[in-house]
Simulated scan of single mutants.
Amino acid sequence: MIDRTNIDEYKQRVIAEFNSRNNYDNDFRYCLGNRLVELAQLQRRQQILDVATGTGIVAIASAQIVGDEGKIIGVDISSGMLSQAQRKIEAANLKNVELQEVDADYINFDNNIFDAILCSSAIVYLSDIPRALRSWYHFLKKSGLVAFSTFPDGIPSVPELFMAIAQNYGISIPDLKEPLNTPEKCRKMLQEAGFDNIELTTEQFGYYMRVSDAKNLWNQLSNNNLITPQLQISPEQLEQFQAEYIAKIEALATDKGIWNDFTTFFVLARKSAES
């Protein structure tokens, strides 16, 4: 589990990591975001909050559904992500999307104003998820929807392979998924925040990576701003770590490449109509 006791340091690492990403908009991210929007079954004229909007994948898809009579507010802590989102919004000529650079842990809106609150694969980056869910509950109208996606532990993805090898060197990589890595944890946290009508769908978004891409992922993983501070090992050990990573990739290679598993939980819940 990630140490979030020093919140300011943690937030700065999150900002630095996402400001550095210029290849975020890949097929995988679009599949995740578009599926979340599909499951949310948004309607015209609705008011939507997109938490950790990133490059606006969910915000833009939602804006096209709710139409000019509706409104999307997308919030994110990363100015780099929001700059990319703004360019895409302008290119699509959308007038119903407002972006706000703000820490999603501390957003403040009036009660009962949103029809739905969405968060695609980013809820685990919040420093206090229970508090955030309680706030979202108040922001929602009666019968309003919260919908987010998250991931289980133990999936055989390339990043999980990296983290497993790191343990051989006494490196404890932060586990962002831990608060919501099982259906039971998701349900319990939502119930404690006041939500009911909880639905959880498990879907597979895995894909085969080229072996060369899986090897090159070392650079991204070992320089990730959330991981790098944990790599307090000698240059010789780091070189050995990389060699072991490459050897494991080569051992797992098939004629299709390296299977990168991305089992995903899509979690939906409602605010009570009597609230």
Rank of each mutant, 00 (worst) to 15 (best):
F241Y: 02
G56A: 04
K71H: 15
K88M: 05
Q191M: 00
W218V: 07
P235E: 09
L231Y: 12
T53F: 03
K11F: 06
I249S: 08
I107D: 05
Q84W: 08
I15Q: 02
C186W: 00
V211M: 04
L161N: 14
A253C: 14
A251F: 09
R187L: 01
S127Y: 02
N197I: 03
D128C: 10
R134I: 10
W218G: 01
F195Y: 09
Y169H: 14
D196G: 02
I89Y: 11
K248M: 08
D27V: 13
R4S: 11
G257Y: 12
D255Q: 13
Y169E: 08
A59L: 07
F262T: 14
I227F: 12
F162Q: 06
L94F: 11
T254Q: 08
S127G: 06
L190A: 05
L82W: 01
S234T: 10
I72S: 09
Q43F: 05
A132N: 15
S121E: 09
D105R: 07
L161V: 12
D153L: 13
K141T: 13
K141Y: 07
Y30N: 14
V14Y: 01
R4C: 01
I2M: 13
I171C: 10
S143I: 07
D196I: 07
E184Y: 07
V97Q: 00
S135H: 08
K177S: 07
N224Y: 08
I72P: 10
I198H: 04
L94R: 08
G154N: 14
N197M: 09
G33P: 03
A122Q: 05
D8R: 13
V14D: 01
I198K: 10
F139A: 11
G33D: 02
A122L: 00
D153E: 14
A40Q: 13
R29I: 01
Q204H: 14
E69F: 09
Q12N: 11
W218D: 00
N93Y: 11
S272V: 00
R131H: 05
I117L: 07
Q41T: 13
A63F: 02
Y24M: 09
C119T: 09
E98N: 11
E101Y: 03
K11A: 07
L42T: 05
E184F: 12
S172D: 12
E178A: 15
T55I: 12
G206A: 14
N6H: 15
K185T: 07
R21Y: 00
A243C: 04
K185W: 10
V158Y: 06
F195V: 01
A273Y: 03
L36N: 12
T228Y: 11
I123H: 10
V14L: 12
F262N: 10
I246G: 06
N111W: 11
E38D: 15
Q191P: 04
E69Y: 15
L217Q: 06
S172A: 15
G170S: 15
Y10F: 11
E250S: 09
D3L: 10
F151Y: 09
E236A: 11
D27W: 10
V158S: 07
Y207R: 15
G33H: 02
I113G: 08
V51S: 14
E178L: 13
T228C: 04
A52I: 06
I249L: 11
A247S: 12
